[in-house]
Write a protein that binds this DNA or RNA. Structure first.
Lengths: 147, 147
DNA sequence: TAGTATAGTTCGATAATAGGACTAATGCCG
DNA sequence: CGGCATTAGTCCTATTATCGAACTATACTA
């Protein structure tokens, strides 16, 4: 008999599968010089650019790690760093054209996964799943938008 | 306006939060000489012991990585390796007493998280969440038990 | 039995990760 | 205003994680 897995582990299983597929889709689209850790960090960049320390928090890594990851992303031409006009100490990490060009491939794979899941669960269950996850976010995600 | 996050990302957020809490609980219980990657691998060990190649698949790492992680876990006294009686090439990785002694702390934190989530979502939504996740597992987890 | 597949390890190279210390810019408060 | 704690980011350094390639030993198969 298999033990009842914790809900969080069930989530981790599905989330990891999705992450792998999205990463593979990126590689298939020709973005082979980026790693999973780097793409996780890059996924936290807002359209207008984001501070390194914020990226570090979002990706749950130390500032030093974020610096190293951004260094590599910058060297590969996926991001650049510009001065933050509102704070002389800070700099904003922004996606470059090259990175933005890869977004459609990522979004497409995301949607494909979404559709497959919905086909497997049915519309109602999928909606319930999203509702529950969205609610959970308010207690698990410090970056969740104010309700 | 914030974009609608993919379902898989919502899962990843909650799952990561839970993983961090469980790992922190382990450290608080005195298990400070283990890393997250090591504990992820160890989490895949079955009661009777598990082959290294299976652990590698479950944790989604290469065999070489699994070897390295088991090496460290073994050095720290959390696992041992014994000959697999059914196959002369294979060895079984088993949890030691020391590792088993830490399990209650892990399970307790898992339950605490489970309860907090249920309190936040309500019983019905929590049940729906688990139902959907369990169904999803059949298409996202190669290790899912036969339905 | 010869040939092939599988389990695990070793070697070597690169990436990820973080503690500590450091510089520079901010912001607060008397 | 001026001192002083705070914050953003980086550098240095050490450890861990990760994997490609090659290798050994055992198992399977035709």
């Amino acid at each position: 008999m298999t033990r009842e897995l914790p809900t969080s582990l069930l989530m981790a299983i599905a989330a990891r599968e999705a992450e792998n597929r999205i990463f593979a889709a990126m590689q298939a689209a020709g973005y082979t010089d980026i790693t999973l850790a780097q793409s996780r960090l890059a996924a936290g960049i807002d359209p207008g650019g984001t501070r390194l320390s914020v990226l570090a928090e979002r990706a749950q890594v130390a500032k030093q790690t974020a610096t190293a990851l951004v260094d590599r992303l910058e060297a590969a031409g996926y991001v650049d760093r510009v001065q933050d006009p509102s704070d002389g100490r800070a700099r904003l990490v922004r996606l470059t054209e090259r990175a933005l060009a890869g977004l459609p491939a990522v979004r497409a794979e995301e949607q494909r996964i979404e559709q497959e899941w919905e086909a497997h669960l049915g519309t109602a269950r999928m909606a319930a799943l999203r509702e529950a996850l969205t609610m959970l976010r308010t207690i698990t995600d410090p970056w969740a938008p104010a309700p």
